[in-house]
Design a protein around this nucleic acid. Sequence first.
DNA 1: TAAGCGTGGTC
DNA 2: TGACCAAGCTT
Length: 312
Amino acid sequence: MTAPTKPPHTVPAPGSPGSPVDGTHLHTPVIAWFDTHARDLPWRHPEAGPWGVMVSEFMLQQTPVSRVLPVYEQWMARWPRPADLAAEAPGEAVRAWGRLGYPRRALRLHGAAVAITDRHGGDVPSDHAQLLALPGIGEYTAAAVASFAYGRRHAVLDTNVRRVFARAVTGVRYPPNATTAAERKLARALLPEEERTAARWAAASMELGALVCTAKSEACHRCPIAGQCAWRLAGKPEHEGPPRRGQTYAGTDRQVRGKLLAVLREAHTPVPQAALDRVWHEPVQRARALDGLVADGLVEPLPGGRYRLPLT
DNA sequence: TAAGCGTGGTC
DNA sequence: TGACCAAGCTT
């Protein structure tokens, strides 16, 4: 391995060694903007509590707010504490998940509720490492719950924040496909020292990406930091580098899984094989999709070729 | 590291 | 109209 030679006359990229990144010039305007423009979302109310925050974070993984809202309300009314969900069959979580998509999240949220009940006395932990150990919680969600529910100081790096940083600080239209070490380092460097301010900054920078600095139609005229945005000041250069990989869906196993599970969600008695066979004409793919659902624990096969959502 | 995993809205 | 996108996680 040859050590790369550092070009002698280049300015260090923001967040790189030797480049002091101080976010104070961003914190104040973004937090002030958040104070007047933040959406009134139920999981931001004090009564939502840590469990409400956690439920919302699971549901919001790759799913828009507008579709989460009604399911969230029903969910919290039915299972106001982790122990309430833990006492249910996992299939009930999958059913209540409805059409939010990625139903493995429902199974993992149920698993997390069981773990919280067993290991944490029924209280959502505030410690990042303990959160990370729960099923369905990765780096982002652990930081989000610790920050939003408990006011802890964590870099909360979701797709919105990554885009805001890419533009405002790094000066490019889009962040890399996958989160890089440089992005994590930058996010940590920009984190306000004070715990309360850091938590506020996390929510505010995220909201800015969700409402103003969006992927397709950035609204710089409404942006509190437009005057200091590196990307805008550079003339909004187009995206360079590898194309952002899109998601395919039509004709995939994913689509077939969705159709199969929709039948099982609606049914309240075991479903015969023939009913499932109707959702997809191609038998090989259909069988593969069903096997996958069973392997994932989303579907429970019964003797006699019948199926249902999992009871255990 | 990259692929797999749902669903529906938007332009 | 179809490609893109939406508060990611797991393997």
